[in-house]
């Protein structure tokens, strides 16, 4: 739902979210903080408009549970691992820069994937090319092709979990046969464009 003010579109969701943040920061849900919060929220949204994100997502609850719990597990294991690399005796580790091809077209899904990949230790995201769907990252402990394949597999699996949690039709993206058919169904010029 959207309202209008001074020619700007304001989403009620953003106003609600900013108001909640304001009230929580004051730590007291009184009338004054709530009214003040709404005022500040509207002011912020009018003064600093954000580009609209075209969202076409569907939440799959089970996929989200899998995504979050696996993420917390990865975070714990990898944090301890990198911490150990930092303090362990002996020569310190080296890493490598590598490119990984993502499968999801949606920028929002690519963003979520990149954020989660960046948060899990062992990989730092350097760049993301949304049109080419190319994620450039730096990975620790990559010394040969086998290590590189391991990192690629992990990132792919992470993206698959993100797609399973948010994409309206996950299998259309993840099933290689259906992805190929969808690509063939489009005219040739569009395909070249995408590459």
């Amino acid at each position: 739902m959207r309202g209008r003010l001074l020619g700007r579109q304001l989403s009620w969701g953003s106003i609600l979210w900013l108001t909640v943040v304001w009230v929580v920061l004051w730590r007291s849900p009184t009338l004054l903080t709530v009214v003040g919060g709404v005022a500040v929220a509207v002011l912020v949204l009018v003064a600093f408009p954000l580009p609209r994100v075209r969202v076409k997502l569907r939440l799959h609850p089970w996929g989200l549970v899998v995504l979050v719990s696996r993420f917390l597990w990865d975070l714990t294991v990898a944090s301890i691992h990198v911490a150990w690399l930092a303090i362990a005796h002996g020569p310190t580790t080296r890493g490598a820069v590598m490119d990984i091809q993502l499968v999801a077209k949606e920028e929002l899904l690519q963003t979520i994937t990149a954020e989660l990949v960046a948060l899990v230790p062992g990989t730092v995201v350097i760049d993301l090319d949304a049109r080419q769907r190319l994620l450039t990252l730096h990975a620790l402990e990559v010394e040969n092709d086998k290590d590189a394949q391991r990192v690629r597999r992990n990132v792919r699996a992470q993206e698959a979990r993100v797609v399973r949690a948010f994409h309206p039709d996950p299998e259309a993206v993840l099933d290689p046969r259906r992805a190929r058919e969808a690509a063939l169904a489009r005219p040739l010029g569009e395909r070249k464009e995408e590459r």
Partner: peptide, 9 residues
């Protein structure tokens, strides 16, 4: 590699 240590654990 320092970025890893600085942001991750």
């Amino acid at each position: 590699t320092r970025m890893h240590a600085g942001t991750k654990p």
